[in-house]
Simulated assay, not measured.
Amino acid sequence: MRHIAYSEAGQAMPAQTVALENEAFEAIDGTKVYWLGNASILINSRGTILLIDPILDSFDMPLLIDMSVDSKTIPKVDALLISHIDNDHLSFETLENCKNVTKSYHAPAHVADVMIDQGFEAIEHAVGSSFTVGDIKITTTPTRHNWQNEMEKYKYREWKEEEYVGFWIETLDGTIWLPSDSQLLPEHLEMPQADMILFDFSDNDWHITYEGAIKEANTYPNSDLLCIHWGSIDAPTWNTFNGDPNDLVKDVINPNRVHALNVGEALDLVKK
């Protein structure tokens, strides 16, 4: 796959970082989905800008990538979506740096409260609820990723399943589904077929597992698979971050729909 390189430790990583220019935020005729590294996503749907789980500053683990955009230079965000509280999905420094240009914040239970405490007026959304941003309809989808309950360090509270969500995004140009970090749930195999899946294929028990990822991918054999949660964090022995998109090509139906982008690169949303 042309956009994949390998680190000295053998970890799959994007070949390069492409600088994100201001035109990525301007009005366009269709919908483009940009991968900003790890699980960070920018969607431009006819000029409406969604920023999902942006980690653009001071990440607390060593990286394999450079950032494609300085968070202080982002010109507009119509809605900033946070799927859950993990530090590879929620950066308050990034949120602060683009606060003056962000119109709204959306997050699940508990996460919204934490964001409000930090000065960001987040709107809380229950699992299965819907909201609109311009012409876009967004519905939260169920996940299971409350791994903190297994760790003594985090047992100062109960981490509830509904504090972690995915997003089903309906645009004028098609549908995008972010299952988010999650164990594979029966509901994940009963969705309508999305035109694009923001695809975590981490072989980790609190993620989908590789076997689960193949099952999910082949349940929706025509969905474009934009690979996320890979090649960004220098962790060759940590299966949460070290998936290889070349493996997917061998195992999924219609392998030409597997897209491993460079950081800062976009994939056009196409109705199937």
Score class of each variant (00 low, 15 high):
residue 227 C to P: 02
residue 40 S to K: 10
residue 267 L to N: 05
residue 213 A to G: 10
residue 80 L to M: 13
residue 268 D to A: 14
residue 115 M to W: 12
residue 158 E to Y: 10
residue 128 G to Q: 04
residue 9 A to Q: 13
residue 126 A to W: 07
residue 174 G to S: 09
residue 87 N to H: 13
residue 17 T to S: 07
residue 256 N to T: 15
residue 228 I to D: 00
residue 139 T to M: 05
residue 242 N to H: 10
residue 158 E to K: 15
residue 157 R to N: 01
residue 69 V to N: 00
residue 208 I to V: 15
residue 115 M to K: 08
residue 37 G to M: 06
residue 209 T to D: 03
residue 161 E to H: 04
residue 120 F to T: 11
residue 4 I to M: 14
residue 76 K to Q: 12
residue 156 Y to F: 14
residue 31 T to E: 04
residue 170 E to T: 09
residue 26 E to S: 06
residue 266 A to Q: 13
residue 186 P to H: 10
residue 4 I to P: 03
residue 193 Q to A: 09
residue 200 D to E: 01
residue 190 E to S: 12
residue 103 K to V: 03
residue 150 E to V: 04
residue 21 E to S: 13
residue 79 A to N: 11
residue 244 D to I: 07
residue 201 F to Q: 06
residue 64 L to F: 07
residue 127 V to H: 03
residue 98 C to H: 07
residue 230 W to V: 08
residue 72 K to D: 08
residue 217 A to S: 14
residue 206 W to A: 00
residue 178 L to F: 15
residue 231 G to N: 01
residue 171 T to L: 06
residue 114 V to N: 02
residue 83 S to Y: 05
residue 215 K to Y: 06
residue 244 D to G: 04
residue 104 S to R: 06
residue 53 D to S: 13
residue 96 E to L: 02
residue 103 K to S: 09
residue 66 D to K: 07
residue 60 D to F: 13
residue 143 T to L: 03
residue 140 T to G: 01
residue 261 L to N: 10
residue 205 D to K: 15
residue 237 T to K: 14
residue 200 D to M: 04
residue 154 Y to Q: 03
residue 246 N to P: 00
residue 237 T to P: 00
residue 250 K to V: 03
residue 74 I to T: 07
residue 73 T to E: 13
residue 69 V to I: 14
residue 225 L to S: 03
residue 10 G to N: 01
residue 163 E to L: 02
residue 12 A to T: 09
residue 271 K to N: 08
residue 218 N to L: 02
residue 126 A to G: 03
residue 12 A to V: 10
residue 64 L to T: 10
residue 242 N to L: 08
residue 175 T to L: 02
residue 126 A to L: 11
residue 78 D to S: 11
residue 221 P to K: 13
residue 166 G to S: 06
residue 32 K to W: 03
residue 202 S to L: 04
residue 197 I to A: 08
residue 223 S to M: 11
residue 154 Y to H: 12
residue 254 N to G: 08
residue 256 N to K: 15
residue 4 I to W: 07
residue 259 H to S: 09
residue 68 S to V: 03
residue 48 T to V: 15
residue 268 D to I: 08
residue 172 L to T: 09
residue 141 T to V: 12
residue 182 S to K: 05
residue 113 D to Y: 12
residue 205 D to F: 07
residue 20 L to S: 03
residue 149 N to C: 05
residue 142 P to D: 00
residue 169 I to E: 01
residue 224 D to Y: 13
residue 78 D to E: 10
residue 184 L to A: 10
residue 124 E to A: 09
residue 27 A to T: 15
residue 47 G to I: 12
residue 234 D to T: 02
residue 11 Q to L: 01
residue 131 F to H: 14
residue 252 V to C: 03
residue 52 I to T: 04
residue 243 G to T: 12
residue 97 N to K: 14
residue 266 A to Y: 15
residue 103 K to F: 01
residue 203 D to L: 10
residue 245 P to W: 04
residue 104 S to F: 04
